[in-house]
Structure formats: structure tokens, C-alpha cells
Amino acid sequence: DVAEQLTPVLPDGPGEESLQFVSELKDSSCSGAVDVSTVWWAAAGHRELRVVTASESAVSLWQPLAPDCWGKVYTWHLREIPVIQIVPLPDTCNLVCVALGELEIGEIRLLLYSSETDSFEHSLVKTGNIKAVVGLKDQRLVSSSRTMQEQQVEMVSLSETGGSKDKQTLMPPEETVTAFAEVEGMREALVGTTAGNSVVVWNLKTGQLLRKMHIGYSYPASICHRAYSDSGLLFVVLSHPHAKESESCGSPAFRVVAFNPRTGRSAGVMFCCLPPGPAGRRGDVWDTAGAAVLTSGAVAVWDLLRGRCTAVLPAGPAGRWALARWASGGAGLLAGRCNGTVHLYRY
């Protein structure tokens, strides 16, 4: 039924860009999947893409053994505080970053293999009332945390051994930062969204807060996913988890907004709608593709440049999808069910 309902939103059918099933990974010991991701892992002079799965109390690393066959390499048990999410570290090898907490993130940990002790370990990177965290290229991690009095925004450079090499304090905006996104192709630029529905821009090298630009009142509580700088404009991919469905344009899943950082003015560029009916949940963006799990248990994929839905994974008889994440380096889409099943699709 779900597939039939969703078919009309794909004007040209699934087409070339539809998802091709590659392989399945089944974690029979998983009692409730909370996140899935990929990590580059180097061992014995060979670098490969591995899958990372997380439940509240354990994070597992999976290795490709043969076509369509995954084997669990190791499981880190984290029993004191529940795991909330895996924080992807783009281009980083042999390091998995996880956020733990109850309702909010209380600590960030690195999971790694230590060749010195020939064992898998985990180390604490940060504690506090952490509101947002993002992993950036070159093993950098930015987080915002809040005390009663003030907000702290900080970037740490991570070492291969799980420590922090270097720290840079970023100037905090007055409003709480709710999400960060790296700016494609600009190593020293970072954008964030705030609780007051603004986009802020930092210089990561100097820690300066360069600009605060209001998004507008139409879509409150916007979350940034990705940004691109082109022709003097900053294009920011936003999602609106709390936006209401409207008759004219349906429920917004992702919006691409162009900001002129010089003037602070903005204009909507592209608008991706959820299929009629189902509301959206967590979304993920890679390059110019967006994916989100719908409340119906289906996964929808959008081409953010053309503003159209390009593929839908219906919930199907095996169950509802709970997670949708893009794999590193364009390796495809990971779709996960609560029971620990993960499907890898080529996109």
C-alpha cells in the first residue's frame, strides 16, 4: 500500500537514479538500532569501507567478508550512558565517533583500535550539555555546549590515538546553536543554525563569528545539513522537522536557500516536498542527495538540485525503516530497521 501511495510522487518512475540493492547485514544480537554509518578502516596495508551499527549500549564494526556478506569485527560495549548517534568523521580512518546521553548529548567518545596495546579501546573527548556536534574533514570535531550562563562553541583536532591534539574556541552567537554543517570546498568555513532560526558563519582558523543571517519566519526551527559556496553565494541545505503541512506546497523535507553573506539577504532556491500524508523524521544529506525516513516507515530520496523525489524504499513486509544514512564517499545509502537489519543500496 505504501509503495502504491508513494509512486505518484515519482513523476518519471524510479528511473536511472533509483536505489539498487547491494547487500544486507543482520545483527541478530541487536535489541534496538539507534544509528548506522560507515568508516574507512585500514588494516594490514589495506583500506576498506566498513559499516558501523549502534544500539543504545553497543557499537559494532562490520567488515565485508565476501560479496553480500558482512562479519562483525568488534563490539564496543558502552553501558553507562545510552548511545544517541554516530557522528561521521569524513575522510577519517580507523576512528568512530559517538554521542552519548539521555535527551541531550552528555558526552562524545572516540572508538578506536590501538596498535600499541593491540586492543580496541574508547576514549572520552568531551562532556557537558552538548547541543550540537559535527565531524569535519581532517579529523576535526566541532560542538556547542551550554551552561546556565553561556554557550561554548569549540573545535578539537583529534589524534589517531583518540585524544585531542588542538583546540580552537569559536565565538558563540547569542542564540543556542542547534546544528552545524561543513561548507563544501571551504576548509576554514563552517555554518550553523540557531534556535532563533538564523544561519551563522564562522572562520574556523580564527574562531571569528563572521555573519548571522535570519532564515525567515515561514519555517521555524530549521536544521542545517550541508552548505556550498558558489559564485559569491552560500547555498545551505535546511530541513524543517517541525514545519506544518500546507495545502499549497505540502510538507517541506529539504530546502536549499541561497544567502548573500555580504548583505545577509536570502532567497529560496529549491524546495523538496515529502510525499502527501506521511510526515518526515531524521534526514541526511550527502553531496546533492537528501534522504529521510518517513513516519510510514518508508525511506525517500531527493535530488536537491532538481528538487524532486528520485527514489522511495517502501516499508515492505519485513518491517519499517527506522534509519537512513549516506555512506562515506558516495558508496551508497544505508537503510536500517530497528531489529538490527541494515541494507546497503547503490544510488
Partner: peptide, 23 residues
């Protein structure tokens, strides 16, 4: 979107804003 909507555009906005913003 046009320049009239968004105001004057600068290709070096990052460097310019970094030079103008408080350290």
C-alpha cells in the same frame, strides 16, 4: 535569484568578512 534580490555579491566574501569581523 538575482543580484537585485540579494544585494551586491562578492566572490571574496569569506576573506572580506574575516577582515571586518571582530577578532
Amino acid at each position: 535569484c538575482s543580484e537585485s534580490d540579494l544585494g551586491p555579491i562578492s566572490l571574496n566574501w569569506f576573506e572580506e568578512l574575516s577582515a571586518e569581523a571582530p577578532p
